[in-house]
Design a protein around this nucleic acid. Structure first.
Lengths: 237, 237
DNA sequence: CGAATAATTGAGGCCTATCAAACCGCGTGG
DNA sequence: CCACGCGGTTTGATAGGCCTCAATTATTCG
């Protein structure tokens, strides 16, 4: 678990510089605000924990993870962000975590000062933060109280749209309750998100495979044979 | 760990009804908004997970914990709130966690709809959420990656003002680096906050006592003999 | 003072981490 | 075409940290 090399690989460093930057006066949520649209390659770092937090980002397309590091290299992925979410908002002068792309992404970068002066955007930020806060609560429950099996099952269920929540009404088709999903995270990243080791994540996935709940088409493509069967393992029921 | 009885004890039920309610037209953060000032006794529940989320609260005085339950009774305390913090803001129609007082408290209750229409308050909500989100990130790191000893040490350090953070400059007096703190949480509550069991929390505290890092004046009053010595155990250094 | 509640301590077991090795997919180049 | 190497994944053996269950001690409060 050596994630300490901030300058180790050239690839990340290159992709830190956004590949496409165009000033644009408008935009959907930041109407009337200048925002720079940026593109970043997969596995590139947008900012590091401790960097000067002078910009706020909105994820337009792709997936991003936020993570924190301990001095000895232990890593915790604190958030997985989907399009529409805001990130890079800091309470103090510096970012409290690093942001790394899991896929190629498009983001809109806003000037921090401008955001603070815009009511429209403030409201948007609030809405995002509230939703993200609830996800964090859910994740704290996962990290603090769930078993390895429950964590992995919860993680997979998160990627089945409209299922596993409060309002889940079960499979719409009693016979066919399957779903196909793309992970877009390595085992190590999943482990660091779920507070486990890579070996444990792998073992749990193998176990689910053995039980016939899932099938692996590729390492990063999982086919859930029975969504309800998977949901049974989340600890929610 | 049976926390499932929502109607079990009469005491909580009685104290759900605030003991003092006064309509007031003004207030500090909610200028121009009606807010009800409420008082709640220690160990009373302000709202339950799943309740209709039609009100937003600001903690004026005292300490409150937010927690979530799993169907089998497992509990995770997701936040500990100090005065000035906002709580009860939901993304959907219902609260995602329960709010229980750890001490006698004073809170201001706002109508949810009113908050959404007020820019001043929106900004205040944003600021609070950002700060709370950073705390959640820190807590996710604790829950996912820290040992029992590191969790308890981090928990205790959190209550030593101005120490243990990025900007900690060490003890101001080289000789005398002690601090006195009040827990205001039972061992069970601490355990549910740190993702541990009550026995483990107790054992770690005994261990710190044996090492001479802390001293227990009472069960809920801890005297830290050497703050820097305690900080060594947090995993941050 | 004694009952009730909370905290501590002990013994044992389980779940997950750790260490190590084998495996797999995939691009490279002989 | 296939050996080769590389990164990521899987599997195995073992150990250890924390949980569980149980008993004891301390604290609170009528």
């Amino acid at each position: 678990m050596a994630y300490l090399d901030r300058t180790g690989d050239g690839i990340s460093q290159i992709s830190v510089a956004p590949s496409a930057v165009d000033q644009r006066p408008g935009g959907e949520p930041g109407r009337g605000l200048r925002s720079r649209s940026q593109r970043h390659a997969q596995h590139s770092i947008i900012f590091y924990e401790g960097d000067q937090a002078d910009r706020v980002f909105e994820l337009d397309d792709g997936i991003i993870m936020l993570y924190k590091l301990l001095p000895d290299g232990r890593r915790q992925v604190v958030e997985i962000l989907n399009p529409g979410m805001i990130f890079g908002i800091a309470a103090g002068a510096r970012y409290d975590c690093s942001a790394e792309t899991l896929t190629p992404v498009r983001v809109s970068a806003f000037d921090r000062k401008e955001i603070e002066g815009c009511n429209t955007l403030q409201r948007h930020v609030s809405r995002c933060l509230i939703s993200q806060m609830e996800k964090m609560h859910e994740h704290a429950m996962l990290l603090g109280r769930k078993s390895a099996m429950e964590r992995v099952a919860s993680y997979l269920m998160r990627m089945v749209p409209g299922r596993g929540g409060e309002d889940c009404i079960g499979p719409r088709d009693a016979e066919c309750d399957d779903h196909d999903l793309a992970l877009s995270m390595t085992r190590q990243e999943i482990a660091d998100y779920l507070g486990l080791t890579i070996e444990t994540v792998s073992r749990v996935i193998s176990d689910l495979k053995r039980r016939g709940v899932i099938r692996l088409d590729r390492q990063d493509r999982i086919h859930v044979n029975r969504v309800c069967g998977l949901c049974k393992f989340t600890g929610i029921h």
